[in-house]
Write a protein that binds this DNA or RNA. Structure first.
Length: 818
RNA sequence: ACCCGAGUGGCGGAAUGGCAGACGCAGCGGACUCAAAAUCCGCAGCCGUGAGAACGGCGUGAGGGUUCGACUCCCUCCUCGGGUACCA
């Protein structure tokens, strides 16, 4: 950063910014008329987790990009509502609080105050009247209410599920706290433990969540995000097949490759599979039990590591292959997961890599049932042949010769007739576990009564307040610290008045953030989560911007909750975010910012040095918003010089008559072209090119040395989304008493975006050789004639025969010579 | 391993089938200045020919293809970033 010494009447960002921030607050410029707006536009940015470190430059980039869009929409005449809030519950806050030994309820307000200061300083158009924090009882009361609606509707249920358990710290760990199968803090090997936990039935909605992704009338999202969601939901089409057991019953498997059933030479069950006991032969019992115990102890993360060596044991039992009628041995192995499909697979080692590896390890037979184009049935397999598009069946009885795709249908139909197959769609998505055995979250509003069982807390008793306990650390009981707080924990049953206990788990932070956009427009209503009319007016969110790290969980959970609320009649839409765009990431001098590298950029010092407007302009200029870019200290002086030049132009407007001078046609054309280009670029979030276009216009004006007031005014308006304080000040200096944000976005005249005479590029054999100037409306004949007569062109055509002439209207001529 | 994104001057980046390098940073030359900073004017992809205005060739990670024409579309490969992870 180099020092600059401003001349007395030059642009002083600190003074300008302080002035306008005060004025915006006083005039309430940034608040939308929520009840009366004519053209509501809900411009939402993912709310931040208020960390102790404050907002870093990457956050500022994202917030500025969202704010720039909101301000642009406002200038286009929309009533823009741009709220902000804080996602302050969760394990991040809790762990940090434990680390520094200060209660999160004390830390969070300090952090929020700091975030508020930063977000105000950068000049965000935030509707502070509607600020919210998820830790506020007035907010989480309704988070609990949403839980109860799902419970009532049968969309919430309780079941035992595995958690990561550190036997040394005696506490439940989140997946992120497990590093290489060991506890992040003490290094002890992590085990799994089964706990009763609450789940939401998101899998019931898998199909709809998937279908809506393709419905443009409901959602316009960036492709990368919809693709990530599609993959996460993971739809697979296949069939369930039954492998009969001696003495009745069957092992049911799910497969996407029913065409390979003739090659199923063994079966594998998940160690937890309920049929394991029945199948295990007496002499195998010891080995099977040992394997099951070992599998049960493993932590949740390493259980699912793909490249580890295959393990498993034979149960001693057999089942019957429904296609061949042959008995196949049944094994158990931890590579088969109880949570997916039926918890059992038919193993086809010839055509599945995992099964191939397993068969090789344990000496099980490999049979080829699919062959590629030029292969014959006898070719031995050196590796699994997994191509499921090309290839024909072999060693599959009457199905030999059928292409794979056809064989899938034919075999399922054949087995279905005999009652051993059912077509089936399977999703990878699993139900959402919302229980957290922690302190810092909204208590799940449920009471357990010995007489009545599980009783929901009556809605009129919400919120269930999180008690302000001193010791909020997890302890060796494995249940939430809340269980230690007797007068909170023991309550009379709301149904029978008898002795009862509260649920001590709190809910996942993702539940807090799954509905916050519904709360913003209704923050002043204490008696309802979201007002019906307000919601109808403002929701779904018109434009949502956020990081792609939330492409899956947050966005999917929000969609699910909206869908449930829709089905229960609480909201009129299924999809909460009409438009979503992911912002890119900022790196510093080519490397990712991180504390360990010591290259984290703190925005405050840059803002103090250059002002918020220059900083904003630089952030939006350094790269495409949706891709991010490289933050370099040297780069920031360019945008500042640009503002200085605009300032000087406004200055000239104020005190000279030169401003009346007639514009050259070329300046008029550039002006109108710029208005079009900037408008289109803003809409596409291509802020860097929008700014470049404005710089070009300024350069043209300066070079031509002619200008007029109207042009300068429009320049200021186009600059306003990026440099709001600067634009306000210029607007005032240009003689306006109202906010620049109440001005209209400039429009352009398409006829004036084209010069009277245009340049046509002349290529010979595809290489640019010359240019000719023609009148704007010149026809093909005239242009070709001019091109052929051009001296430079003639040097390259050299009298040779012209075999082909290509004419692109208004742009180019290509002459192909022999 | 799979899925997604990206690879363009010294640097950030622009152009998504039609003049590659807009705009900006850094750099170089000049003006102003006692001098420096700031500001203003100009130069600027690489290689070659030329004293020179100029002229020619090459050039968007690598190789192939489609096309009158490819940074842009297709195939194969390499590198980097992000996501997912034994999903049957």
């Amino acid at each position: 950063m180099t020092d600059r010494h401003p001349a007395p009447d030059s642009y002083d960002p600190q003074a300008v910014e302080a002035k306008w921030q005060a004025r915006w607050a006083e005039r309430r410029t940034n608040e939308a008329d929520l009840a009366g707006a004519d053209r509501p536009f809900y411009n939402l940015m993912m709310f931040p987790y208020p960390s102790a470190e404050g907002l870093h430059v990457g956050n500022m980039f994202a917030f500025t990009g969202s704010d720039t869009y909101g301000r642009f929409k406002r200038l286009q005449g929309h009533d823009v509502f741009e709220p902000i809030g804080f996602d302050a519950f969760g394990i991040h806050s809790e762990n940090y609080a434990i680390k520094v030994g200060v209660h999160p309820a004390e830390l969070i307000p300090q952090n929020i105050a700091n975030f508020t200061r930063q977000l105000t300083r950068i000049g965000g158009m935030f509707a502070w009247d509607h600020v919210l924090s998820t830790t506020d009882p007035a907010y989480y009361k309704w988070t609990q209410w949403i839980f109860l609606q799902l419970l009532k509707a049968g969309k919430a249920y309780k079941k035992k599920a595995a958690v990561n358990w550190c036997p040394s710290c005696k506490t439940v760990l989140a997946n992120e706290q497990v590093v290489d199968g060991h506890c992040e803090r003490c290094g002890t090997a992590v085990e799994q433990r089964l706990l009763e936990q609450w789940f939401f039935r998101i899998t019931e909605y898998a199909g709809r969540l998937l279908e809506n992704l393709d419905d443009r009338s409901k959602m316009d999202w960036s492709d990368t995000t919809t693709t990530a969601q599609r993959n996460w939901i993971g739809r697979s089409e296949g069939a369930e097949l039954d492998f009969a057991l001696e003495g009745g019953g069957a092992i049911r498997v799910f497969t996407t490759r029913p065409d390979t059933v003739f090659g199923a030479t063994f079966m594998v069950l998940a160690p937890e599979h309920p049929l394991v006991d029945r199948l295990t032969a007496p002499d195998r019992r010891a080995a099977v039990e040992a394997y099951r115990t070992a599998a049960a102890k493993q932590d949740l993360v390493s259980r699912k590591v793909a490249d580890k060596e295959k393990t498993g044991v034979f149960t001693g039992g057999h089942a019957t292959n429904p296609a061949t009628g042959a008995p196949v041995p049944v094994w158990i192995a931890d590579y088969v997961l109880m949570e997916y499909g039926t918890g059992a697979i038919m193993a086809v080692p010839g055509h599945d890599e995992r099964d191939f590896e397993f068969a090789g390890r344990f000496g099980l037979p490999v049979v080829r049932v699919v062959a590629g184009e030029d292969e014959d049935a006898g070719t031995p397999l050196a590796e699994a042949f997994v191509d499921n598009v090309a290839g024909r069946l072999v060693n599959s009885g009457r199905f030999d010769g059928l292409p794979v795709t056809e064989a899938k249908r034919a075999i399922v139909a054949w087995l279905a007739e005999r009652g051993t197959a059912t077509p089936r769609v399977q999703y990878r998505l699993y139900d959402w576990t919302i229980s957290r055995q922690r302190y810092w979250g909204p208590p799940i509003p449920v009471i357990y009564c010995d007489a009545c069982g599980t009783v929901p807390v009556p809605e009129d008793q919400l919120p269930v307040l999180l008690p302000p306990i001193e010791d909020f650390r997890p302890d060796d009981t494995g249940v939430s610290p809340l269980a230690r707080h007797g007068e909170w924990y023991y309550v009379p049953c709301p149904a029978c008045g008898g002795p009862a206990r509260r649920e001590t788990d709190v809910s996942d932070t993702f539940l807090d953030s799954a509905w916050y956009y519904l709360r913003y427009p209704s923050t002043e209503f204490a008696d309802r989560p979201f007002d019906r009319e307000r919601t109808a007016k403002w929701c779904p969110v018109t434009m949502y911007i956020g990081g792609n790290e939330h492409a899956v969980l947050h966005l999917l959970y929000s969609r699910f909750i909206a869908m449930v609320l829709h089905d229960l009649g609480h909201v009129g839409f299924e999809e909460p975010f009409r438009r979503f765009r992911a912002h890119g990431l900022i790196v510093k001098d080519g490397a990712k910012m991180s504390k360990s590298r010591g290259n984290v950029v703190i925005p405050d010092e840059y803002i103090a040095k250059w002002g918020a407007d220059t900083f904003r302009l630089y952030l939006m200029f350094l790269g495409p918003f949706q891709e991010g870019g490289d933050f370099r200290d040297e780069g920031i002086s360019g945008p500042r010089r640009f503002l200085d030049k605009v300032w000087a132009l406004v200055d000239q407007c104020e005190r000279t008559t030169l401003m009346g001078s007639e514009l050259h046609k070329s300046v008029v054309v550039k002006w109108h072209q710029t208005k079009r280009k900037v408008t289109e670029a803003m809409e596409a979030l291509s802020y860097n090119t929008a700014i470049a276009a404005q710089m070009e216009l300024l350069n043209t004006v300066r070079e031509s040395n002619c200008c007029e007031r109207h042009l300068v005014k429009e320049m200021v308006v186009m600059l306003a989304p990026f440099a709001p304080h600067f634009a306000e000040e210029c607007w005032e200096r240009l003689g306006h008493e109202t906010s620049v944000f109440d001005a209209a976005w400039p429009s352009w005249d398409p006829a004036l975006t084209v010069e009277d005479r245009i340049e046509i590029v002349v290529q010979v054999n595809g290489k640019t050789r010359s240019k000719v100037e023609v009148a704007r409306g010149a026809g093909e004949e005239a242009v070709l004639e001019a091109a052929l007569a051009d001296e430079t062109t003639l040097r390259f055509t050299g009298g040779r025969e012209i075999r082909k002439r290509i004419y692109v209207p208004g742009r180019l001529v290509n002459l192909v010579v022999g």
